[in-house]
Nucleic acid binder design. Sequence first.
DNA 1: TGTCCGAGTTTTTTT
DNA 2: AACTCGGACA
Length: 739
Amino acid sequence: MNNNMNYLDTLNPAQREAVTDDQHNLLVLAGAGSGKTKVLTHRIAWLIHQQQISPYAILAVTFTNKAAHEMKDRVEKLIDMPTNGMWIGTFHSIAHRLLRMHWQNANLPETFQIIDSEDQYRLIRRIMKNLNLDEAAWPPKQAQWYINKQKDEGIRPKSIIESQDLFQQTMLKIYAAYEKACQQSGLVDFAELLLRSHELWLNNPELLNHYAKRFQHILVDEFQDTNTIQYAWLRMLVNEKNKIMIVGDDDQSIYGWRGAKIENIHQFEKDFSNTSTVRLEQNYRSTGNILQAANAVISGNYNRLGKNLWTQAGKGEPISLYAAFNDRDEARFITNRIITWTQQGNKACECAILYRSNAQSRVLEETLIQANLPYRIYGGTRFYERAEIKNALAYLRLMINRNDDPALERIINLPTRGIGNTTLTLIRQTARTNNFSMWQACQHLIKNDSLTTRSQNNLLTFLDLINTMDPRSTDRVGDDTQQAITNELPLHELTEHVLTCSGLLEYYKKDKSEKSLNRRENLTELINATKEFDVEDESTSPLTSFLTHAALEAGENQAESHSDCIQLMTLHAAKGLEFPVVFLTGLEEGLFPHQMSMDSVEKLEEERRLCYVGITRAKQKLYLTYAHTRMLHGSEMCRQPSQFLRAIPNECLEEIAGASRLSSGQARAVPLQIPRPISYKKRSVITETSCGNFKVGQTVSHNKFGEGIILNFEGNARVQVNFKKFGTKTLDLNYAKLS
DNA sequence: TGTCCGAGTTTTTTT
DNA sequence: AACTCGGACA
């Protein structure tokens, strides 16, 4: 509190310049580990303490929930008071807040709900079925992608010009139908949150004016990840009176696939007046070797704003490269290294294992479990994305809004209550022809006696069930007064009540399988979550608040634990974090860089940036690993080392003899097929992985030695093969007949 | 209507 | 390997 001056002393000159500039709109180019968050948090503290700016006049926007939480925590410590009521949050949560407050101006029902991408996908599929579009010809994923893309660019169906192109026509048709369905059901997807709040300001200048006046200082983190609509939103908010500071690193832009535009960072100086640029280039995180490797990798990209990270730290340990025999071997290598690390008195939580795609975590997990090492995995299917949780949430959603069709679809026959396909189809049809929600369609069908007695009874039971579960209701059958739910019943009691009455709990109890048990535990966990949930936003009902939390934060997939765990996550999830020891795994062509990103320079450059992000997570020690063969999509695939490895200078690398530890320790796990220890002298594997039609890792057959696996090429005609029965032989391709 | 089975398909990254 | 979908059958 009274260390106002002290905290400025901890900044270097560039950082201090960024923190204390009160004249300009600021662009802070902050390299990895250069104290980006420090600058942001210190600036907030400086504004409040030194400039007497009210905390309520500050808007701080981040990209991920993790970053938002961290910023809140650190600001709280610096200014020594709670940040409640301060506008610090992700773009999405802030957009949501605006929409809740001004739902009328945004043309939304008060009870509008957020749908996640899975809900969105289901809804799109439903709509496409209604439009009689063949799923094989028109993948729903593609339509989903198209819709989000348009929204990210701020484009509504009505502003799309009719085209001759069948693809465009079809997509437009789906988009328009989807938009209508969302509006009718009061549903808002992620992209819609941003687009709507942009339009909110566009259509209500007095509102915009209010916020532009209120927010004297706007701070934006990870600016390189903003998309068109977010950029436009910020531009509207900033005028001659208030100031914006953006912090970003064009080399860490890894969300292009989600509509992020690196160009925004270039555009800033042109679109905003009176700007000044500060570069943070001193890295406080990593060793010289790690930084050198990172710089080398990223230098393969064109069109960079350019900066050069440097450090006062020494070179440190060399980076270790390990060529594994297969994915299991890779996992085992990592496990062994971590065991060594902890045996030296270090903590397991100081180690992070990073991978390109979530699917890679499985083998790693299995190996860690075998070795009895505790781990924590970020990402993957998160808590609120689990099927059983979403089923439960669907009931809760119906409590608030009966017209939530996706929610109704989800649980109308779960647990099964005799409402089968025939009835369901009829409901959908009725809804469509009359412009009803499905709930309304159900009522309509019953009123008109359009069903068989059996179906009618079953349907009635369902409607009654929902109505009686609703704590607001006495006997109302489906009225549409969308008043906010009353707070009579505490959230957790309501949840428990719903889980029991709906029969959902019972449904998962019937099945005695391991999976069902797990689902039941998750449901119990959901009740706990509602118990512990504190409502941040008093203006809405606890239930609405909780559902928002579930949609926007999605939760971790394992309970928060501060225990000493190895950290597993994707490279994307690792952004913004740092660890003493980092294992960067699966450095193979097609995996990292990913196959999907290898067809264009832009995408490949994004992969390279992702690699840069991965490398710069490491503080002390970096391991790079790849495997010669790997289980992919259910079958063993041969792999080639990633091109990114080639970019790393030899001088900061040390190659660890591959597979030598295969034979020791866990011999039983992988039996006879294991080749004898492979020792690579130089980095021959990387430069030569194929020769003629043969590739490293390929299974070949020799008329005398039988079957074997190609380990290596020497020169341009000699091949090293590990035969199942005869061990490793070096053969001359010109003589030996391999097939 | 509900359930079971087999065939076929599919896989990046996240708010 | 994991999921979805459609069809056959109870």
